[in-house]
Design a protein around this nucleic acid. Sequence first.
DNA 1: GTCTATAGGCAGATAGAC
DNA 2: GTCTATCTGCCTATAGAC
Lengths: 195, 195
Amino acid sequence: MASPPAASTADLILDAAERRAQSFGFNGFSYADIADELKVTTATIHYHFSAKSDLGADLLQRYSRRFAEALAEIGGRECSAAAQLGAYAQLYEDVLREGRLCLCGILAAEYETLPAQMREQIVAFFASNEAWLAKVVRVGRERGELQFAGEPRDRAMAILCGLEGALLVARAYGGVERFRAAAEIVLAGAAPAAA
Amino acid sequence: MASPPAASTADLILDAAERRAQSFGFNGFSYADIADELKVTTATIHYHFSAKSDLGADLLQRYSRRFAEALAEIGGRECSAAAQLGAYAQLYEDVLREGRLCLCGILAAEYETLPAQMREQIVAFFASNEAWLAKVVRVGRERGELQFAGEPRDRAMAILCGLEGALLVARAYGGVERFRAAAEIVLAGAAPAAA
DNA sequence: GTCTATAGGCAGATAGAC
DNA sequence: GTCTATCTGCCTATAGAC
């Protein structure tokens, strides 16, 4: 019954813009780049996203929504806290394999050059990720699966920063292999001491 | 005897460019921005750095040299490995206090848009930092001051990534306070278990 | 070494035909 | 919705006077 989901032009533009933003940054691609890729003109893109700041806001909204959905799915699994953290790290590794970074990670580097709305969306993304991670490590510790000192929120911040930094560094230096080495240690910080 | 070190125009240009690059990225400032700040014209800057890629290369060379000098100084101190790691993290915190990021951290986000020479310099910076950190944690473990499993090199990568990521995230979300919380946990990963 | 002047290109954005 | 055509501004870079 349901017809195949033909991607709209707006979606195709968002797809192309997202890929480029995660590779080159928001200031690293132009309407002309996307227009060439999609075989349309820049005027067509302006019809769907009148200003580039609008495109950026829609980009972040979609990315954050999808990321939140992925976290909700992982959070709903009946598995250990360590396995959930592993799945979280896998989200990062998957984008690195495509030569990309986390959209909010790379945009955080351009933070000072971005419009106010995009800044707020980036902050909200980090806050949301930190909250999700804090819950996972807090519950994990309560269950005795994880072991760490201090506040869950601080532990969550360290995991978030460790993985964002590992993406940033490993894309330039070391690749997926070094990313995994760093990610493993970042997550092991909350693992129970070996008996 | 020695006259006061009057900063040359080239140095003033490098200073201004460095400050802007650490805040807005290499693609986030123009010759006109620096020219306005120094009350000169863009032609003057082109006289000292004929292409922007030359400016970028000189910027990275000077930054890496100064950073290496700071690491050599810290490495020469007669203090514990933990204290050396703390001093290392302090270098990062100091730039965050000025609203900046590590030059190579922010340029790593723009990596795919940068000329080949700058890419190589960024990679060399990360490799050099990793090597310095690896030595500190290796010696620290040998002395019984630090405790961690696995290769010193992997531990070094995790510290480097954790601090670079903490800078990136904390500038947008949480500020110096959250940076310290994350940095503390990153370094604590190699600390001896509390008795 | 620094200037004026300007070239040549690319950016984001708009008007109006189809 | 998509196009052609174009505007305006900013960018890197250069030529040549001082």
